[in-house]
Write a protein that binds this DNA or RNA. Structure first.
Lengths: 229, 229
DNA sequence: TAATATAAAATTGTTAACAATCTAAATAAC
DNA sequence: GTTATTTAGATTGTTAACAATTTTATATTA
């Protein structure tokens, strides 16, 4: 467990955040080699902190670590997408079951704020901001049950989930519409609105269904398009 | 993700395994400061690999990492125990639900072998061996569903679960018996035997109940004894 | 004496150089 | 011409020294 407090960032964290955002934002090709000396040169620091960051990214699954051979940007298969969506959804449902579907007033307010962000980003082309709004939204669901380690576990999946966002977006920009005839932005808004309504009404069952629909749809889109390719 | 293959260990892994086992085996006091230079001197290597190991242990929750101030052996509260047991149990049940309660022949054989180990260790005083047998047993349950990342997630909880083993043992060596009048070893055997039988009979429901009983009992014992202390 | 400020020691964070390993190119053997 | 073998280069793994920070001990002041 890492105790924070003062967020005066050390170099490892700077490298970590930089690399994570670069990967999620799609500025690094899946499979691409991540050479420590290149990165440390780019960020004007030594290899040590960069190595730390790469090891952490390997834990998060954004990077594949091959001992003695270096790191590569993770190649994420449709199967990976399925697993991440399934797990993230399962953890959120588990949290809701524990809390009886009840998210407190602060949580609801935060979710509503995140909802507004998601709406306003629907037309834009800002993956990183989308990912952050999405995380803010779903985090409140997980936090509802007050089980710290469940949240930590869910949090560990977030970077991968973020990377999937990019995959989804790229798939969509080719076809622009999915089976339902909705744009990606619209579906994102719809999907989250259904979850929010369920949580606000306090219906555990409907909330779980909404979460399933949300994550399964994501998985389905990735899977379908993998067939076309 | 870390690709292995050749398990010719590097120094980071040596330090990691050493520290993890020391902590789980109770040779380091909870709260104790872990000073990099001391450890590296002890293991005859430099601070670099030791730092790597400590960072990994922080991810696993066995160590608390205080930036600029160093690491301490994690202080695990009854609440932590509850959360770890709850999560580990939840993930195992999730896996079984996915696999419809079906563990393949190889898995069953492995579980039976682990069961024998657990039995033979019942009288001994070998926490590390107990932990490994327990892990071998439960791992097969998680692996049944073939979701790689679910296993990885569960695996990440294993070191903490191992540490809880020690806590449980220490509590028991004071009172030697729990409410049920069973010795710790006997309960361990009983509890796992019920799980194994359920899995072998293919009954998802009974397997989930057995898992719940197993983990909830662990949590209960830790909680109860925290009241006495 | 107790509380605060200062100085010394210990410890972590970072770097740069060295060692070991892997990769790829050039050479040799068939 | 193709396959091995050797060699040179690139990259990771490890170390030891340095810088920054924190902790402990000492001295100062009220």
């Amino acid at each position: 467990m890492i105790s924070e407090g003062d967020s005066k960032k050390n170099y490892s964290d700077i490298a970590l955040q930089y690399l994570r955002e670069q990967i999620i934002d799609g500025n690094m090709q899946p499979g691409e080699k991540l050479i420590e000396s290149n990165i440390s040169e780019k960020l004007n620091l030594s290899r040590g902190p960069v190595r730390d960051a790469l090891k952490q990214l390997a834990v998060e699954g954004l990077v594949d670590y091959h001992p003695n051979k270096g790191c590569t940007v993770a190649l994420l298969s449709p199967r990976d997408a399925y697993e991440v969506f399934f797990l993230r959804g399962s953890l959120e449902k588990l949290a809701l079951e524990k809390s009886g579907g009840h998210v407190d007033a602060y949580g609801i307010l935060t979710m509503e704020a995140a909802m507004e962000e998601i709406k306003s980003l629907a037309g834009e082309d800002n993956i990183l901001a989308e990912v952050k709004a999405d995380e803010k939204f779903h985090a409140q669901i997980v936090l509802s049950c007050q089980i710290t380690r469940l949240y930590k576990m869910w949090e560990l999946l977030s970077p991968l989930n973020g990377a999937m966002f990019l995959t989804l977006k790229n798939l969509r920009s080719r076809s622009d519409l999915d089976g339902s005839g909705m744009s990606r932005g619209d579906r994102l808004v719809n999907s989250h609105e259904r979850i929010l309504n369920a949580v606000k009404s306090g219906s555990l069952e409907e909330a779980c269904k909404a979460l399933d629909a949300h994550y399964l749809k994501n998985g389905e889109i990735i899977y379908r398009s993998s067939l076309k390719a």
